[in-house]
Design a binder for these strands. Structure first.
Length: 483
DNA sequence: TGAAATGTTGGGGCG
DNA sequence: ACGCCCCAACATTTC
């Protein structure tokens, strides 16, 4: 009867395959209007960070190209989402809006308001699950509450009896022959110009659904079966590097889940061979973080363990700056922070070491680290970022105990024993022999000279002594416990 | 998904 | 041959 089109409101689901909102819209048999709204001014302080904006630009361009290859392109608009939706509805006569859910507290509140508003206007509105294996309200303890410990959560996920199959790209995908106007992506200025700190990003990344699928296929072909052992070695390509693709929804956790299990079955006959099991548990760590964010919406700002509000954090802008710029004098920490700055990503093992150093050695508030990562990571994700920083600080759910303090020297020796990683990211130390690479302050004058190093000039002295800092942190923790 | 301190064990040098 | 000490190597506990 009516041929009014349907709006598919793309958010963090920048893909066509396994996109439940797109599929639901296509099933109406009307033309669709693929719409992206840049509205992150409303995000309560969690607007896209710099590195995320770089990625978003590429990812939007990729989605637009994918859509154009089938029919019309992506419509871009900027402004408050509800106003933009109203505008597009009045311009096109659309009578339905579809989207995949987001779980940030500000987004939940906004989407709820918009849903109510559109229903008041008698539009069809449907929200779908495009981002998670399980909705946060679906996995519950026997008491009916949310899980606060990972291991039982992971067990509960495996007991659910299966993850539904990914959806194909809907065919046909028809768009309006005269679509509404779109902003020019270039003019959103999402990418940095002067200085262009993202100059080297393209060497590391190919944003978009195609790049994501390739990354997954490569990982499943080469590395997943060794993942259990290799994932901790930052100098080796043992991790999937799917995090930014997952964050922007260029690939779905369902697609990863099924592809990994299919690969495991075909190679080993087991659905979850060792490395595959470990890899999927990491995907479920992401789910666990979303579970925490949903049930504890203050996760990004307040410690889950409330007694931590009294922790004697230290304000030290110079030390914070040294950490941010990779100039702490601890090679493994500095390597990580420079990898982050150069590529928009840091190896997970090194994230833990660098975070432990900021929180426990420098006693700087974890939210400073959270904010820096938010701005510099291409995979910056509110749930994962907040949950992980609280985990390291010891104030989160299922948190690392406070007395678990990483020793950057031992961690470096254990996980980067041949110095591949440190030499790549801290090239001024490359000439040191392995045995002192993680402890340049213990190198002999001859070793320093022949490596061309003058401590304090070509590479910094340690900004704190780890042994002393460890004692200070433990004392602060004991005081907190006693209070 | 630690590290450091403390405790225990056992082999070998030595009187 | 035997006991004693030293001290790795490993285990346990403590933070």
């Amino acid at each position: 009867m009516s041929d009014a089109p349907s709006i598919v409101w793309f958010r963090l689901d920048l893909r066509l395959s396994d996109n439940p909102a797109l599929t639901a819209a296509a099933q109406r048999g009307r033309a669709i209007i693929p719409l992206f709204i840049l509205d992150d001014d409303d995000a309560e302080g969690w607007a896209f960070g710099g590195a995320s904006r770089w990625w978003l630009h590429q990812s939007l361009a990729a989605l637009d190209a994918d859509l154009r290859a089938r029919h019309g392109g992506l419509i871009l608009r900027r402004g408050p989402a509800q106003d933009i939706l109203d505008q597009v509805i009045s311009e096109t006569g659309a009578d339905a809006v579809f989207w995949n859910r987001r779980y940030e507290p500000w987004a939940i509140a906004r989407d709820g308001r918009i849903k109510e508003h559109l229903k008041d206007r008698d539009l069809t509105v449907e929200s779908c699950n495009g981002a998670l294996l399980n909705e946060p309200w679906e996995i519950k303890t026997n008491q009916g509450g949310p899980y606060k410990v990972f291991t039982p959560y992971w067990k509960a996920v495996r007991a659910t009896g299966g993850i539904s199959d990914p959806l194909p790209i809907p065919q046909p995908l028809s768009t309006l022959s005269s679509p509404p106007a779109s902003d020019d992506l270039e003019r959103w200025n999402l990418r940095p110009t002067r200085p262009n700190w993202a100059a080297a990003f393209p060497e590391s990344w190919t944003p978009g659904a195609e790049g994501a699928a390739e990354r997954l296929a490569d990982f499943l072909d080469d590395d997943v079966f060794a993942y259990k052992d290799q994932r901790n070695a930052p100098g080796k390509p043992g991790t999937s590097r799917l995090s930014p693709h997952l964050h922007f929804g260029e690939i779905s956790p369902r697609q990863i889940w099924h592809a990994a299990i299919a690969k495991s079955l075909s190679e080993t006959g087991e659905p979850m061979a060792d490395g595959v099991m470990t890899f999927l548990s990491e995907v479920v760590w992401r789910e666990f973080s979303y579970n925490l964010l949903y049930h504890f919406p203050h996760l990004p700002t307040d410690p889950l363990k409330t007694e931590f509000a009294a922790f004697p954090w230290i304000e030290d802008p110079a030390a914070l700056k040294a950490w941010q710029t990779g100039m702490t004098g601890y090679p493994i920490v500095d390597a990580g922070m420079r990898e982050l700055w150069t590529t928009g990503w840091m190896h997970n093992r090194v994230r833990m070491i660098a975070a432990s150093f900021l929180i426990k050695d420098l006693m700087i508030h974890w939210s400073e680290g959270e904010a820096w990562f938010w701005d510099t990571l291409v995979d910056a994700d509110l749930a994962s970022n907040a949950a992980s920083w609280q985990w390291v600080a010891g104030c989160g759910a299922d948190a690392s105990p406070y007395f678990r303090i990483f020793n950057p020297v031992l961690q470096g020796g254990k996980f980067d024993p041949d110095g591949t990683y440190v030499r790549q990211w801290v090239p001024e130390l490359a000439g040191l022999p392995d045995k002192v690479l993680h402890t340049p302050w213990e190198a002999s004058p001859l070793e320093l000279r022949s490596a061309g190093i003058t401590l304090g000039q070509t590479y910094p002295e340690r900004i704190v002594d780890h042994g002393w800092a460890r004692d200070r942190a433990l004392a602060a923790y004991k005081a907190l416990k006693a209070a």
